[in-house]
Computed example of a mutant assay.
Amino acid sequence: MGAAAPAEAAPNGVDIVLDGADDPAWRALLSPADPETCVREAILAALAGAGHAAARTEVSVTLAEDAAVRELNREWRGKDKPTNILSFPMVQLAPGDSLGPLLGDLVLARETLEREATVERKTALDHFRHLLVHGTLHLAGFDHETDEEAERMEALEIEILRGLGISDPYAETVE
């Protein structure tokens, strides 16, 4: 996966540690965009949208292959398959709770992300940023276990993504 990029303190105090951004397959998938910039923009937008614009916290992001994510998914969730993103909060929060100094970890699976983007007729970059927003909201205490939670989280994602110039990922596509 490569060495992790050191955390860089943003003006609002959000540190992001990114591992795997130097992977040629990830760089090719997200080209011509810069993975570090995309990760920072999506996470900061998600935190601001969740009411944490002045957050002082750290998020670790790992860009991985399906095999690594499958192993984590099996170990931590009992599901023996890869998934697009895994969120590992440092502390279980509820929406609106104060964030601690370490928010948690996000792990993305490249092949799954790429496959989903193709099937859903989205750019890989837009899907990448959507998954980062989605995962960050999980770290901040949002979930989609109930219909009410799902509606709230989806509406927030749509609003945040609109601010990033990304269309509603939940809209039905017309063929």
Rank of each mutant, 00 (worst) to 15 (best):
M1L: 14
A4G: 10
A9C: 11
A10R: 12
N12F: 08
G13P: 03
I16A: 01
V17M: 03
G20V: 00
D22N: 09
P24R: 09
W26D: 00
R27W: 00
P32G: 09
P32W: 04
P32I: 08
C38P: 00
A42H: 02
I43D: 04
A46R: 01
A48Q: 13
G49T: 01
A50L: 04
H52T: 00
A53I: 12
A54H: 12
A54Y: 09
T57K: 02
V59C: 04
S60K: 10
L63R: 00
A67T: 12
R70C: 06
R74F: 10
W76Q: 15
W76V: 13
R77Y: 13
G78R: 12
K79I: 14
D80H: 08
P82F: 03
I85C: 09
V91Q: 13
Q92F: 11
L93D: 03
A94G: 07
A94I: 04
S98G: 12
L99N: 00
L99Y: 08
P101V: 06
L102F: 10
L103F: 06
L103D: 03
G104S: 08
V107S: 01
L108P: 02
A109K: 00
R110H: 05
T112F: 06
L113A: 03
L113K: 01
L113R: 01
L113T: 00
R115Y: 11
A117F: 06
R121Q: 14
K122P: 00
K122D: 14
K122L: 15
T123P: 10
A124P: 05
L125G: 06
H127I: 01
H127V: 00
H130R: 13
L131F: 09
H134T: 03
H134P: 01
H138G: 01
G141W: 04
G141P: 06
F142M: 13
H144S: 15
D147A: 15
D147K: 09
E148Y: 04
A150S: 11
A150M: 13
A150W: 04
E154S: 05
L156N: 00
E157L: 04
E159R: 15
G163Y: 12
G163R: 08
L164A: 09
V174H: 11
